[in-house]
Design a protein around this nucleic acid. Structure first.
Lengths: 159, 159
DNA sequence: GGTGAAAGCACCGAGTT
DNA sequence: AACTCGGTGCTTTCACC
């Protein structure tokens, strides 16, 4: 995978858009003392390069009744079944992300549910997939998301 | 936390905006056969209710040279140190999310790094936090994100 | 690669049904 | 609650630097 170099202006633009994709390009332009046209061209360039893959809303799932988060580690009967099981897992809507991992588990995923009862159903569905030997669940008591803005500044500025 | 009820139109609007926050309200209106003003009012309502917390870009971190993902389970010397350690963890920019969990680990977090060398540095920083007894790392060999669109449709439509 | 202005639209609030 | 409509302001393009 090619590594793409961004300059300081690109970083500043990303910083602002990452916090709010709807911030007007004219505002960005004012802050960075460049023209709105330039902002537009640079954003387009980052989109074309695939650095900006898309945009999405941040939804408050708790307000929608989904306040249960857990991580589930999956042990397979045989690692050759990894691909098959991963495909099945991705058919389950309540699994938000799945990873093939080294270490203790073969597959590791995050689930989002309404409550413990609902989570139980999801975990049973995972257990029922062919090739899954057993699962181990870690319930999240508190989620703490890192601040995106700081992430961008500190991580990517150094490149 | 109060549970907020969304109707079919709200769901359709969210579905479109979740795929692309910059899709014009006029396009949404055309597709749903309502007026752009109505789209505007409904989005505003969801923002005011806090359902829509914000918006963000999806960045291709791999293209920026950050292709390493791992999960780190943390064992504390004493659970009373949870809050303190969590605060320290959140100061580390490469930790994208941290959870207080039940089960095997006390705290559980996800890190994003350039490579194994870089990951090692981050894990050492975690190990060095006062109160951390030891850590256990699971390296992600493959990440598989669930499709957002399907998530919204299948999960929230039923409420 | 950047600018600035102009044309084309989108947003958004007010007033109406 | 939803619609129309008009003012305001944003995006996007393009000729020029």
């Amino acid at each position: 995978m090619a590594k793409f170099r961004l300059d300081e202006v690109d970083h500043q633009i990303l910083d602002m858009l990452i916090d709010n994709t709807r911030v007007p390009f004219t505002d960005i332009a004012k802050k960075l003392l460049i023209s709105a046209g330039t902002v537009h061209v640079r954003v387009k360039k980052m989109e074309d390069a695939g650095i900006i893959k898309g945009s999405s809303l941040t939804i408050d799932y708790k307000k929608l009744g989904y306040s249960f988060i857990a991580y589930v580690g999956i042990f397979l009967q045989n690692t050759s079944q990894t691909k098959f099981v991963l495909e099945r897992i991705n058919l389950l809507p309540y699994v938000t992300v799945a990873h093939v991992t080294t270490g203790k588990f073969n597959i590791f995923c995050k689930i989002r549910a309404k409550d413990t009862e609902h989570a139980k159903d999801i975990i049973f569905m995972l257990d029922d997939i062919d090739g899954v030997y057993r699962t181990e669940t870690m319930i999240s008591l508190e989620e703490s998301l890192n601040d995106k803005k700081r992430l961008m500044h500190d991580i990517f500025r150094e490149m």
